[in-house]
Amino acid sequence: MILAILETGKGFWEPITFLAFALLVCLTVFIIRMFGRKGFTYSKDKARAFFSGNLADENSRVKASDYFWGFFEAMKPYYNLIMKIHTGIINDYVLWFVIVASLLLIALTLGVFQWV
């Protein structure tokens, strides 16, 4: 039972097989690595990080706010709208509750009258 396959309705999922396959891939990678140059010694110079051809220092890192700027540019109209909604004002929070409760009530009322 513990190792049983998870039935998903139309298919199935067997994580142990997946894990076995992943281990096989790791083993293959390890074997390929063994064919690498012998006698390689690690030194700090060999492991230096470069950023656009320049030696990376703490000023040349990519900050979190710089990530995916293209995505945000493309989605600007959406973000302008969605940011405008997130006002941080508690009155607006309550207003959204009133809107949802009213819409739900209207939908249910129409449904009830149709049903009756």
């Binding site: 039972m1 513990i2 190792l3 049983a4 396959i5 998870l6 039935e7 999922w13 994580p15 142990i16 894990l19």
Partner: peptide
Amino acid sequence: FGLFPSFVVK
């Protein structure tokens, strides 16, 4: 729970 999901689900 990721490795034995079926056990948890059942």
